[in-house]
């Protein structure tokens, strides 16, 4: 028995008006487990929102079709092929709709978490974060944001050498709870490269007891609160699975 969900809310402009949400978050059942994907379209990329949606959906579809247990090499190959496929789709889209856009116009980051049987996998490009917890809300594994020299620089699927910056790992654990988030959420979910326990513990406890509707409503309220938008005006996304 498990609970899956995702919420994505738009950030605010400097005039405190909602932006066009460039994040995309999804958490779905697969043929042998469940997967959570978050992609954050670059604010400066005109079609970043399309890029994040296309990449997320292509990756989750690929994972949903996956039937056999895989190791980290075949997992990273699957992610590589899915991202390359999404880039082809985006190039075709650009031609078809005469957008006259380079692939960098669709720049987006990627965080993927996948549980299949007793195996867990994570693939991560750029910022955002992914955390796996046990039932006592203790951290099992974490994938941290990766930025360039400056905090406002990161890695995108549209970079020529994007695969060189893709970080993948696996571990064995048949019962995990997972939080995947975009960089709009990490400022209050992480502290010194570790989960901020006053955020993650109450969140996991709440997700165990809440229905999907209750969770969606409460997390949307929290992410759009004045406090949250005061900390980060960026788009904010959270995806999760809880094993009950």
């Amino acid at each position: 028995m498990y609970k899956l969900g995702s919420v994505s809310v738009a950030g605010l402009t400097s005039e405190n008006k909602p932006k066009l949400n460039q994040d995309y978050a999804v958490c779905k059942e697969t043929s042998s487990g469940y997967a959570a994907v978050i992609s954050d379209g670059a604010g400066s990329a005109i079609y970043g929102g399309i890029g994040s949606k296309c990449v997320s959906r292509t990756v989750i579809k690929a994972l949903q079709k996956q039937h056999i247990l895989i190791d980290v090499d075949s997992f990273s190959e699957l992610i590589f092929n899915a991202v390359e496929k999404s880039l082809k789709i985006l190039r075709r889209l650009s031609r078809l709709y005469r957008l006259d856009a380079q692939i960098t116009a669709f720049s987006a980051t990627l965080v993927v978490a996948y549980q299949t049987g007793d195996k867990c996998f994570c693939a991560h490009l750029g910022d955002g974060a992914c955390m796996f917890f046990n039932d006592a809300n203790e951290l099992i594994k974490i994938s941290l944001p990766e930025n360039g020299e400056y905090i406002n620089e990161t890695f995108f699927v549209s970079n020529k050498d994007w695969a060189n910056n893709l970080r993948c790992f696996e571990f064995t654990e048949n019962k995990t709870n997972c939080l995947v988030m975009s960089d709009g959420v990490t400022p209050f979910a992480l502290l010194n490269d570790a989960p901020f326990l006053e955020f993650t513990k109450p969140m996991l406890n709440f997700l165990r007891t809440a229905t999907l509707d209750e969770a969606t409503e409460a997390i949307t309220t929290m992410l759009t609160s004045q406090k949250a938008t005061g900390i980060s005006s960026d788009d904010k996304s959270l995806a999760w699975w809880i094993t009950c």
Binding site: L190, N192, P202, A218, I219, T221, S225, G230, I231
Partner: peptide
């Protein structure tokens, strides 16, 4: 409302 949840700017 998520009980006991704290939002703090940890950046």
């Amino acid at each position: 409302m998520i009980k006991d949840l704290i939002l703090q700017d940890n950046t």
